[in-house]
Design a protein around this nucleic acid. Structure first.
Ligand SMILES: Nc1ncnc2c1ncn2[C@@H]1O[C@H](COP(=O)(O)OP(=O)(O)OP(=O)(O)O)[C@@H](O)[C@H]1O
Length: 727
DNA sequence: GTAATTCCTATTTTT
DNA sequence: TAGGAATTAC
């Protein structure tokens, strides 16, 4: 196969990026402009001209994206050998291969959220602190943030913003110790350890640079500092690093993603070539115009032109429903009409800001017999029964995994109760051994003969799993764990059919793994794959079903018809508490990402009233709806059936009037207040018949809230000043 | 040591 | 509202 077809379907700038083989390259472009396509074709091009497949590393944001890319690369007549995966799986693989250099053993466990919480509780306990004053979730958040910034406990003092933040140093230290003792890493450790290893071990760095002579990173705007160091470390000398991304689609700031990685790429790599793609191949002009109108309201951005040749489509739809049930029914109705018009279920996706919103939609779809799939890859593996089954396997793979041990020593109940477990743990801590090692030789444990028997049986079971995993395959080990642990029996006794079904699904997953890895597969590797699963991985775009997922999970995907639900003030933009403020710019980018997934038709819906957290709440119109180009949008505001008169935020005329009156008021704009001086608008939101604004003042750095109608006399907008990024 | 009950709280987004 | 955690009864 010649190179011809590889380059044929590309525009000039795309071709430029694909064929610019050596040196740093930044592809900076808006949605649907073919960034992922460039990465794919470039990989194929490199593999077939200047290097071999095994010397190419392509990093993606999700496993699904990695698999799809691998598939497309194959279709471009490239021999196998390209490494195509996420940062996390790359690091996990390398850390296993070079475990010794990183001070690990190759069978380390990877701790997910629940495991991390368990480990954190242990750590807090060891510090003799209470989880009341030091909530594990909060502690983990702080630790994760530090790790994303490559800060170790030793460096935390300088990193901590204030005195009180330092109080977590001993907890952070203890947490790391707890993980190390169990031969476990959390998600962030995978990146952090790899980044440090690359920085410290020049020999390894050279070796890896020689292995990966060309590095490509998609969705670069959402990489964190550790990922940045890894990418840079792998390309330090050859500088064959190609990154693509769109600052307007950075939506993981809350997880430590650093938008400056992409903004400062040129400074990091002065020799960088920059390619901009401005033509959108995905969406209709109507969708692009609407998305652009919204994202324009972000002040901290550089505008990018985006145009399309695509034919005109229907106007963007807005549906303002009375309540969430009605909204869900209308979504279902829209989908039914789509099918009656000859469309397919596959073409349709429903996005929402938080997972909880999927429920009503699911109900409505079921009522109309609409097939659907929910992107919930991860939560399957977080189900109690699945985690229980996995704990047996993880313990078999890594006997030091105390979290897994504690999870299932007595699940299902087998007569190894709290007192016995306490004694085991005590002994383990004294002897510096793992609980399982203590049980292997329980002579020093003062337990009854009966308990001793149970213990011996348990140790035997784990041993069997180890043997089966080594001699047979993963499927057999999983099946053995579920069957012989008594888990299956306990579920059928409790008539828990769901649990049994999920266990079967787990076995099926293992079977698929065994099929895909006729050789070279292992329990450790399967467990790793399971741990690093991403949310969208389970989505099948050809299964004849409507797809439901969060806006975050939608990144990088595309659908003919997109519906975004819950576009209400407080939901999108999301506000956690009534009085907290959303990161408006990131919320707006999230909305933008969702909108730009649509090829043909885009519908935004909202509900004036919805039940949430067990109580009802009313909400005002989202600013993002107000930012849409009114004249180009087909707007349907359903009349309120509730004659309470209590939907102030939705008073049409008031909203219109407010929009006109405060047209100049936008986030990021500078304002002057008679008393406080110069300030910047941090956020705006409708309130009653007017608007509320949060403003940070330059003089004293204070943040104050104003009701605009009341403050109008003292507060005014400073004339337009495009101060861009540094404002 | 186990099972049942109540209570009680936490719910953004995810690798 | 729903899930887990703690408390209570057996
Ligand atoms: N030169 C081209 N000719 C025809 N179609 C193209 C071309 N480039 C891209 N496309 C199509 O446009 C769509 C979007 O491409 P792609 O997913 O690569 O964009 P992207 O920039 O990565 O998007 P996003 O940032 O929104 O995820 C895809 O369906 C792709 O096939």
């Amino acid at each position: 196969m010649s190179l011809e077809p590889l380059l044929k379907g590309l525009t000039e700038p795309q071709k430029e990026a694909v064929t610019h083989a050596h040196g740093p390259l930044l592809v900076l472009a808006g949605p649907g402009s073919g960034k992922t396509r460039v990465i794919t074709h470039r990989t194929a091009y490199l593999a077939r001209t200047v290097t071999e497949p095994r010397h190419i590393l392509a990093l993606t944001f999700t496993n699904k994206a990695a698999n799809e890319m691998a598939e497309r690369i194959r279709h471009l007549a490239v021999e196998p050998g390209v490494t195509c995966c996420t940062f996390h799986s790359l690091c996990a693989r390398l850390l296993r291969t070079y475990a010794g250099r990183a001070g690990l053993t190759p069978n380390f466990s990877i701790f997910d959220q629940a495991d991390q919480t368990a480990a954190m509780k242990q750590a807090i306990g060891r510090c003799e602190l209470s989880t009341d004053n030091y909530p594990p979730a909060k502690m983990l958040e702080a630790v994760s943030q530090a790790k994303n910034d490559m800060v170790l406990p030793e460096g935390y003092e300088a990193y901590a913003k204030d005195w009180s933040a330092r109080s977590i140093i001993p907890i952070y230290e203890a947490y790391q110790k707890v993980l190390a003792e169990q031969n476990a890493l959390d998600f962030d450790d995978l990146l952090l350890k790899m980044a440090y290893l690359l920085g410290d071990d020049a020999e390894l760095r050279d070796r890896l640079q020689d292995q990966y002579r060309f590095v490509l990173v998609d969705e670069y705007q959402d990489t964190n500092h550790a990922q940045y160091l890894i990418a840079r470390g792998l390309a330090l000398d050859h500088e064959n690093l190609c990154v693509t991304g769109d600052p307007d689609q950075s939506i993981y700031g809350w997880r430590g993603a650093n938008i400056h990685n992409i903004l400062e790429f040129e400074e990091d790599f002065p020799k960088a070539k920059i390619v901009r793609l401005e033509k959108n191949y995905r969406s209709t002009p109507q969708i692009l115009a609407a998305a652009d109108a919204v994202i324009r309201h972000n002040r901290k951005r550089k505008h990018k032109e985006l145009w399309t040749d695509n034919g005109s489509g229907p106007p963007v739809h807005v549906i303002e429903a009375d309540d969430a049930q009605q909204e869900a029914a209308l979504v279902a109705e829209t989908i039914v009409e789509h099918i009656e018009g000859g469309g397919k279920y596959d073409d349709v996706a429903v996005f929402y800001r938080i997972n909880a919103l999927s429920r009503l939609i699911e109900e409505a779809l079921r009522k109309r017999h609409i097939p659907y799939q929910v992107a919930r890859g991860v939560s399957f593996f977080q189900r109690k029964e699945v985690k229980d089954a996995l704990a047996y396997l993880r313990l078999a793979a890594n006997p030091k995994d105390r979290v897994s041990f504690l999870r299932i020593v007595n699940v299902p109940t087998r007569g190894i109760g709290d007192t016995t477990v306490e004694r085991i743990i005590e002994r383990a801590d004294e002897a510096g051994l793992s609980p399982l090692e203590i049980l292997t030789d329980p002579s020093g444990l003062k337990v009854s003969a009966h308990t001793g028997e149970r213990i011996a049986w348990f140790v035997g079971l784990i041993g069997e799993i180890v043997r089966i995993a080594a001699d047979e395959n993963v499927t057999a080990a999983v099946r053995h764990a579920i069957l012989h642990s008594g888990l299956r029996a306990s579920w059928s006794q409790a008539k828990d059919d769901d649990a049994a079904r999920n266990a079967d699904e787990l076995i099926a997953d293992a079977a698929e793994y065994d099929r895909d890895h006729p050789e070279g597969g292992s329990l450790v590797d399967w467990l790793q794959q399971v741990s690093l699963m991403s949310e969208v991985d389970s989505v099948d775009s050809e299964m004849g079903a409507v797809t439901l997922m969060t806006l975050h999970a939608a990144k990088g995907l595309e659908f003919d018809r997109v519906l975004i639900i819950g576009v209400e003030d407080g939901m999108l933009p999301y506000r956690r508490h009534e009085d907290s403020e959303a990161d408006m710019e990131e919320e707006r980018r999230l909305c933008f990402v969702g909108m730009t997934r649509a090829r043909q038709s885009l519908t935004l819906t909202s509900a004036r009233f919805r039940m949430l957290r067990g109580r009802g709440s009313r909400s005002a119109r989202s600013v993002f709806l107000a930012e849409l180009p009114r004249e180009q949008v087909d707007w349907l505001a359903l009349p309120s059936e509730r004659a309470t008169g209590d939907n102030r935020g939705y008073d049409e005329e008031a909203a219109e009037a407010m929009a006109a009156k405060y047209a100049d008021w936008q986030c990021g704009r500078l304002v002057r207040h008679e008393d406080y001086g110069l300030g910047q608008i941090l956020w705006l939101r409708p309130a009653g018949r007017g608007a509320c604004a949060g403003i940070r003042f330059k003089n004293d750095g204070s943040e104050r809230t104003f009701v605009l109608e009341q403050a109008a006399a003292k507060l005014q907008v400073v004339e337009y000043d495009d101060s861009g990024w540094d404002s």
